[in-house]
Amino acid sequence: MPLWLLLPALAVLVPMFAYPLYQLGLLSLFDYGQPQVSGGEPARFVGAGNFRTLFADPAFWTVLGQTVVFAAGCVLVTLALGAALAVLMTRIGKLARTLLSYAALTAWAAPAMTGSVVWMFLFDSNLGLVNEVLGLDGHNWLYDRTVAFALVGAVVVWHSFPFVMITLYAGIQAIPPSVLEAAALDGASAATAFRRVTAPMLRPLIAIVVIQSIIWDFKVFTQIYVMTRGGGIAGQNMVLNVYAYQKAFASSQYGLGSAIGIVMTLILLVVTLFYLRALRRTGEVL
Protein backbone atom coordinates (compact mmCIF):
# COMPACT_ATOMS: atom_id res chain seq x y z
CA MET A 1 0.00 0.00 0.00
CA PRO A 2 1.47 3.38 -0.93
CA LEU A 3 2.48 5.30 2.18
CA TRP A 4 1.05 8.60 0.99
CA LEU A 5 -2.41 7.22 1.68
CA LEU A 6 -1.60 7.76 5.36
CA LEU A 7 -1.30 11.51 4.84
CA PRO A 8 -4.98 12.40 5.44
CA ALA A 9 -4.85 10.57 8.75
CA LEU A 10 -1.64 12.36 9.63
CA ALA A 11 -3.19 15.69 8.73
CA VAL A 12 -5.69 15.13 11.51
CA LEU A 13 -3.48 13.31 13.99
CA VAL A 14 -0.48 15.63 13.93
CA PRO A 15 -2.25 18.86 14.91
CA MET A 16 -4.83 17.18 17.12
CA PHE A 17 -2.59 14.70 18.88
CA ALA A 18 1.12 14.97 18.25
CA TYR A 19 1.35 18.70 18.71
CA PRO A 20 -0.44 18.82 22.09
CA LEU A 21 1.65 15.84 23.17
CA TYR A 22 4.78 17.71 22.15
CA GLN A 23 3.67 20.72 24.19
CA LEU A 24 2.89 18.45 27.14
CA GLY A 25 6.36 16.97 26.94
CA LEU A 26 7.91 20.42 26.70
CA LEU A 27 5.98 21.71 29.72
CA SER A 28 6.96 18.68 31.78
CA LEU A 29 10.58 19.82 31.59
CA PHE A 30 9.88 23.26 33.06
CA ASP A 31 9.10 24.62 36.48
CA TYR A 32 5.92 26.16 35.22
CA GLY A 33 3.28 27.51 37.61
CA GLN A 34 0.86 30.42 37.75
CA PRO A 35 3.59 33.04 38.30
CA GLN A 36 5.35 31.73 35.16
CA VAL A 37 2.18 31.63 33.05
CA SER A 38 1.41 35.25 33.81
CA GLY A 39 5.02 36.33 33.46
CA GLY A 40 5.68 37.19 37.10
CA GLU A 41 8.69 34.91 37.14
CA PRO A 42 10.61 33.37 34.22
CA ALA A 43 9.95 29.73 33.36
CA ARG A 44 12.91 27.68 34.53
CA PHE A 45 14.14 24.62 32.67
CA VAL A 46 14.46 21.78 35.17
CA GLY A 47 15.16 18.85 32.85
CA ALA A 48 13.89 15.67 34.46
CA GLY A 49 13.32 17.53 37.74
CA ASN A 50 9.54 17.19 37.64
CA PHE A 51 9.85 13.45 37.01
CA ARG A 52 12.34 13.09 39.86
CA THR A 53 9.95 14.94 42.21
CA LEU A 54 7.13 12.71 41.05
CA PHE A 55 8.94 9.40 41.39
CA ALA A 56 10.34 10.38 44.78
CA ASP A 57 6.84 11.10 46.09
CA PRO A 58 5.43 8.02 47.85
CA ALA A 59 1.92 9.40 47.29
CA PHE A 60 2.43 9.02 43.52
CA TRP A 61 3.18 5.30 43.84
CA THR A 62 0.18 4.74 46.09
CA VAL A 63 -2.05 6.57 43.63
CA LEU A 64 -0.58 4.70 40.66
CA GLY A 65 -1.08 1.35 42.41
CA GLN A 66 -4.67 1.98 43.34
CA THR A 67 -5.44 3.40 39.88
CA VAL A 68 -4.21 0.17 38.27
CA VAL A 69 -6.20 -2.04 40.65
CA PHE A 70 -9.32 0.13 40.37
CA ALA A 71 -9.13 0.29 36.56
CA ALA A 72 -8.50 -3.46 36.30
CA GLY A 73 -11.50 -4.19 38.50
CA CYS A 74 -13.72 -1.86 36.49
CA VAL A 75 -12.55 -3.32 33.16
CA LEU A 76 -13.16 -6.92 34.29
CA VAL A 77 -16.62 -6.22 35.67
CA THR A 78 -17.59 -4.07 32.67
CA LEU A 79 -16.51 -6.76 30.21
CA ALA A 80 -18.11 -9.61 32.13
CA LEU A 81 -21.38 -7.74 32.54
CA GLY A 82 -21.38 -6.39 28.99
CA ALA A 83 -20.60 -9.79 27.46
CA ALA A 84 -23.14 -11.62 29.62
CA LEU A 85 -25.87 -9.17 28.67
CA ALA A 86 -24.87 -9.29 24.98
CA VAL A 87 -25.32 -13.07 25.01
CA LEU A 88 -28.56 -12.65 26.93
CA MET A 89 -29.82 -10.24 24.27
CA THR A 90 -29.43 -12.91 21.60
CA ARG A 91 -31.55 -15.32 23.64
CA ILE A 92 -34.52 -13.22 24.74
CA GLY A 93 -37.68 -12.04 23.00
CA LYS A 94 -38.01 -8.86 21.02
CA LEU A 95 -39.82 -6.83 23.70
CA ALA A 96 -37.38 -7.78 26.47
CA ARG A 97 -34.47 -7.04 24.15
CA THR A 98 -35.83 -3.61 23.27
CA LEU A 99 -36.38 -2.78 26.95
CA LEU A 100 -32.88 -3.95 27.87
CA SER A 101 -31.23 -1.96 25.11
CA TYR A 102 -33.19 1.17 25.99
CA ALA A 103 -32.27 0.84 29.64
CA ALA A 104 -28.62 0.35 28.74
CA LEU A 105 -28.62 3.20 26.25
CA THR A 106 -30.09 5.54 28.84
CA ALA A 107 -27.25 4.74 31.23
CA TRP A 108 -24.81 5.24 28.38
CA ALA A 109 -26.34 8.54 27.37
CA ALA A 110 -26.36 9.96 30.90
CA PRO A 111 -23.46 12.41 31.27
CA ALA A 112 -20.88 11.17 33.77
CA MET A 113 -21.45 14.27 35.86
CA THR A 114 -25.20 13.74 36.12
CA GLY A 115 -24.85 10.05 36.83
CA SER A 116 -22.34 10.67 39.60
CA VAL A 117 -24.43 13.35 41.25
CA VAL A 118 -27.59 11.24 41.15
CA TRP A 119 -25.79 8.25 42.67
CA MET A 120 -24.41 10.52 45.38
CA PHE A 121 -27.93 11.64 46.22
CA LEU A 122 -28.94 8.00 46.56
CA PHE A 123 -26.04 7.24 48.90
CA ASP A 124 -26.06 10.50 50.89
CA SER A 125 -25.33 9.94 54.61
CA ASN A 126 -28.24 11.92 56.00
CA LEU A 127 -30.85 12.20 53.27
CA GLY A 128 -30.06 9.36 50.86
CA LEU A 129 -32.67 6.88 49.69
CA VAL A 130 -30.37 3.90 50.27
CA ASN A 131 -29.75 4.70 53.93
CA GLU A 132 -33.45 5.42 54.35
CA VAL A 133 -34.46 2.03 52.93
CA LEU A 134 -31.75 0.09 54.75
CA GLY A 135 -32.35 2.00 57.98
CA LEU A 136 -28.68 3.03 58.20
CA ASP A 137 -29.13 6.62 59.31
CA GLY A 138 -25.89 8.57 59.12
CA HIS A 139 -23.88 5.74 57.53
CA ASN A 140 -21.12 7.21 55.41
CA TRP A 141 -20.52 5.09 52.30
CA LEU A 142 -17.29 6.89 51.54
CA TYR A 143 -15.72 6.28 54.93
CA ASP A 144 -14.04 3.01 54.06
CA ARG A 145 -11.59 3.10 51.17
CA THR A 146 -12.66 -0.20 49.58
CA VAL A 147 -16.38 0.49 49.92
CA ALA A 148 -15.92 3.95 48.43
CA PHE A 149 -13.97 2.51 45.50
CA ALA A 150 -16.61 -0.18 44.99
CA LEU A 151 -19.37 2.43 44.93
CA VAL A 152 -17.55 4.61 42.43
CA GLY A 153 -16.63 1.49 40.45
CA ALA A 154 -20.30 0.57 40.23
CA VAL A 155 -21.06 3.95 38.68
CA VAL A 156 -18.17 3.61 36.23
CA VAL A 157 -19.39 0.16 35.19
CA TRP A 158 -22.97 1.41 34.96
CA HIS A 159 -21.78 4.09 32.57
CA SER A 160 -19.59 1.90 30.40
CA PHE A 161 -21.12 -1.58 30.16
CA PRO A 162 -23.67 -0.54 27.47
CA PHE A 163 -20.86 0.16 25.00
CA VAL A 164 -19.46 -3.34 25.51
CA MET A 165 -22.91 -4.91 25.40
CA ILE A 166 -24.07 -3.20 22.20
CA THR A 167 -20.74 -3.74 20.41
CA LEU A 168 -20.56 -7.44 21.25
CA TYR A 169 -24.23 -7.95 20.50
CA ALA A 170 -23.72 -6.44 17.06
CA GLY A 171 -20.68 -8.67 16.60
CA ILE A 172 -22.57 -11.82 17.55
CA GLN A 173 -25.43 -10.87 15.22
CA ALA A 174 -22.95 -10.38 12.39
CA ILE A 175 -21.67 -13.96 12.55
CA PRO A 176 -23.24 -15.76 9.58
CA PRO A 177 -25.71 -18.40 10.83
CA SER A 178 -24.37 -20.78 8.17
CA VAL A 179 -21.00 -21.01 9.95
CA LEU A 180 -22.64 -21.94 13.24
CA GLU A 181 -24.93 -24.34 11.41
CA ALA A 182 -21.95 -26.02 9.77
CA ALA A 183 -20.30 -26.38 13.17
CA ALA A 184 -23.46 -27.91 14.57
CA LEU A 185 -23.64 -30.35 11.65
CA ASP A 186 -20.06 -31.37 12.38
CA GLY A 187 -21.22 -32.30 15.86
CA ALA A 188 -19.94 -29.27 17.84
CA SER A 189 -21.77 -28.62 21.11
CA ALA A 190 -22.98 -25.10 21.89
CA ALA A 191 -19.97 -24.54 24.17
CA THR A 192 -17.50 -25.78 21.55
CA ALA A 193 -19.17 -23.68 18.88
CA PHE A 194 -18.81 -20.63 21.11
CA ARG A 195 -15.18 -21.40 21.89
CA ARG A 196 -14.06 -22.39 18.39
CA VAL A 197 -16.31 -20.27 16.20
CA THR A 198 -17.99 -17.32 17.91
CA ALA A 199 -15.10 -16.22 20.16
CA PRO A 200 -12.43 -16.24 17.41
CA MET A 201 -14.71 -14.33 15.06
CA LEU A 202 -15.37 -11.77 17.79
CA ARG A 203 -11.71 -11.37 18.68
CA PRO A 204 -11.08 -8.06 16.84
CA LEU A 205 -14.18 -6.59 18.48
CA ILE A 206 -13.14 -7.86 21.89
CA ALA A 207 -9.73 -6.30 21.34
CA ILE A 208 -11.35 -2.95 20.67
CA VAL A 209 -13.65 -3.03 23.68
CA VAL A 210 -10.84 -4.19 25.99
CA ILE A 211 -8.47 -1.44 24.89
CA GLN A 212 -11.23 1.13 25.02
CA SER A 213 -12.26 0.01 28.49
CA ILE A 214 -8.70 0.01 29.80
CA ILE A 215 -8.12 3.50 28.46
CA TRP A 216 -11.41 4.84 29.79
CA ASP A 217 -11.14 3.28 33.20
CA PHE A 218 -7.49 4.16 33.65
CA LYS A 219 -8.34 7.75 32.88
CA VAL A 220 -11.46 7.88 35.05
CA PHE A 221 -11.94 11.38 36.42
CA THR A 222 -15.47 12.68 36.75
CA GLN A 223 -16.87 9.89 38.91
CA ILE A 224 -13.99 10.00 41.40
CA TYR A 225 -13.81 13.78 41.39
CA VAL A 226 -17.51 14.30 41.92
CA MET A 227 -18.43 11.35 44.12
CA THR A 228 -15.46 11.41 46.49
CA ARG A 229 -15.14 15.21 46.32
CA GLY A 230 -11.74 15.22 44.68
CA GLY A 231 -10.14 12.07 46.03
CA GLY A 232 -11.97 10.91 49.12
CA ILE A 233 -11.25 11.15 52.82
CA ALA A 234 -7.58 12.06 53.29
CA GLY A 235 -7.09 11.40 49.56
CA GLN A 236 -7.72 7.68 49.98
CA ASN A 237 -9.63 7.36 46.68
CA MET A 238 -7.24 9.38 44.56
CA VAL A 239 -6.62 8.10 41.03
CA LEU A 240 -3.96 9.25 38.62
CA ASN A 241 -6.08 11.59 36.55
CA VAL A 242 -7.53 13.40 39.56
CA TYR A 243 -4.03 13.56 41.01
CA ALA A 244 -2.74 15.16 37.81
CA TYR A 245 -5.62 17.63 37.84
CA GLN A 246 -4.93 18.50 41.46
CA LYS A 247 -1.26 19.13 40.75
CA ALA A 248 -1.68 20.87 37.42
CA PHE A 249 -4.78 22.98 37.80
CA ALA A 250 -5.84 23.17 41.42
CA SER A 251 -2.39 24.06 42.67
CA SER A 252 -1.15 25.50 39.35
CA GLN A 253 1.95 23.31 39.03
CA TYR A 254 1.53 22.87 35.29
CA GLY A 255 5.01 21.40 34.82
CA LEU A 256 4.48 18.66 37.39
CA GLY A 257 0.96 18.01 36.09
CA SER A 258 2.34 17.60 32.58
CA ALA A 259 4.89 15.11 33.88
CA ILE A 260 2.04 13.03 35.31
CA GLY A 261 0.26 13.31 31.97
CA ILE A 262 3.36 12.01 30.16
CA VAL A 263 3.64 9.07 32.57
CA MET A 264 -0.03 8.20 32.00
CA THR A 265 0.36 8.40 28.23
CA LEU A 266 3.37 6.10 28.32
CA ILE A 267 1.60 3.55 30.49
CA LEU A 268 -1.40 3.47 28.18
CA LEU A 269 0.83 3.24 25.10
CA VAL A 270 2.60 0.24 26.58
CA VAL A 271 -0.72 -1.42 27.39
CA THR A 272 -1.94 -0.85 23.86
CA LEU A 273 1.28 -2.12 22.28
CA PHE A 274 1.23 -5.30 24.38
CA TYR A 275 -2.31 -5.95 23.35
CA LEU A 276 -1.63 -5.37 19.68
CA ARG A 277 1.35 -7.73 19.86
CA ALA A 278 -0.71 -10.41 21.55
CA LEU A 279 -3.25 -10.12 18.77
CA ARG A 280 -0.59 -10.26 16.05
CA ARG A 281 0.67 -13.51 17.48
CA THR A 282 -2.72 -15.13 17.18
CA GLY A 283 -2.69 -14.20 13.51
CA GLU A 284 -5.30 -11.48 13.46
CA VAL A 285 -4.94 -8.81 10.83
CA LEU A 286 -5.90 -5.50 12.35
Binding site: L7, A11, Y32, Q36, V37
Partner: peptide
Protein backbone atom coordinates in the same frame (compact mmCIF):
# COMPACT_ATOMS: atom_id res chain seq x y z
CA UNK B 1 -8.74 18.39 -0.20
CA UNK B 2 -7.42 16.92 3.04
CA UNK B 3 -4.07 16.44 1.40
CA UNK B 4 -3.92 20.11 0.49
CA UNK B 5 -4.88 21.06 4.02
CA UNK B 6 -1.87 19.25 5.43
CA UNK B 7 0.78 21.88 4.69
CA UNK B 8 -1.53 24.56 6.02
CA UNK B 9 -2.12 22.64 9.23
CA UNK B 10 1.55 21.91 9.64
CA UNK B 11 2.37 25.56 9.16
CA UNK B 12 -0.22 26.43 11.79
CA UNK B 13 1.22 23.90 14.19
CA UNK B 14 4.75 25.15 13.66
CA UNK B 15 3.65 28.75 14.03
CA UNK B 16 2.00 27.94 17.32
CA UNK B 17 5.00 25.88 18.32
CA UNK B 18 7.06 29.02 18.39
CA UNK B 19 5.41 29.99 21.65
CA UNK B 20 7.15 27.82 24.16
CA UNK B 21 6.61 28.81 27.82
CA UNK B 22 6.59 32.58 27.80
CA UNK B 23 9.08 34.58 29.75
CA UNK B 24 7.78 37.98 28.72
CA UNK B 25 7.10 40.55 31.39
CA UNK B 26 3.53 41.85 31.30
CA UNK B 27 2.88 45.38 30.25
Amino acid sequence: RKLLALPALLALALGAGACAPSTDAPT
